[in-house]
Design a binder for these strands. Structure first.
Lengths: 143, 143
DNA sequence: ATTTATGCAAACATTTTGCAATAAA
DNA sequence: TTTATTGCAAAATGTTTGCATAAAT
């Protein structure tokens, strides 16, 4: 349903690195840093935040490379790019495109949600728009 | 369900202006320009775009005021603020918080969607998160 | 050997802040 | 008259580009 649907599901850091090669992207040291971080934290971070964390961790990488990499990785469906009020946030692709935004912990949990066909059909009939994809943002509290 | 739920529905420019006063906001000339534009175009625009359009239309307003106003209007639930890859987009509040994003025309259509209670309950059981609100982004084509 | 990726320097775009002048109520 | 609002100037923030160098395949 999604345009950027994953051909092969990415379920691990190794999958992500392999997908880079499949897409003709080289597995550079810096690219690996970014993917390692993203798989390590299992969160959605801004480009700036990713650069800061890697730098603080002593990883040798420039901010330009972080931006360039995240754009390329997102374009190739290897990471996900969300638009939030904090700016663009990048995170793993875990094969699902709806999110639960935890208002207390600030975490974003990936979930897979299938809407009833009747709901979609009714919407299409009402608006005249042919719906090809959807994403749901849930908001809630963990405690 | 929504935290920022409208106490009184805003269905017209007049409603929006009245809501300003209810909230203790003054109806300045510049504030009126912004709301007039938003109700006129019925689209979601960036702060920059709003400033540009008003300037081009000969409206006397500074860019600082546009940013300050949009923030205040959004904080008071008089306009809606969406985060998109183009940056933050502002538009009317039309009492509904799901959107159909038209990939051909680039328009955003407001729709009201009620998810089945079972779906929400199942999600809460699976994730342990108490869900208090949600928004759906549909993607589709008008032609 | 070939081509992608890096990252500095600099530009660019967007948004925010301090604050004195202005205008709405 | 009082207080919110305006908007200039300037800074801060975030992101992008050109391009020579370095590194991956």
């Amino acid at each position: 349903m999604s345009e950027t649907a994953a051909q092969t599901p990415i379920r691990s850091l190794e999958d992500a690195l392999n997908r880079c090669q499949d897409k003709g992207m080289r597995v550079s040291r810096q690219r690996r840093y970014i993917l390692e971080l993203l798989w390590d934290v299992q969160e959605h971070l801004s480009a700036r935040e990713i650069y800061d964390r890697l730098s603080r961790a002593g990883r040798d990488i420039g901010h330009t490379s972080v931006y360039q990499n995240l754009e390329a990785l997102a374009a190739n469906g290897i990471v996900e790019c969300l638009d939030r009020s904090e700016g663009r946030l990048y995170g793993n692709i875990s094969d699902s495109h709806s999110h639960i935004n935890c208002l207390d912990s600030n975490q974003i949990i990936d979930v897979q949600v299938q809407l009833p066909a009747e709901l979609l059909e009714r919407l299409e009939a009402e608006t005249g728009v042919r719906i090809v994809d959807y994403r749901i943002d849930f908001y809630g509290y963990q405690r």
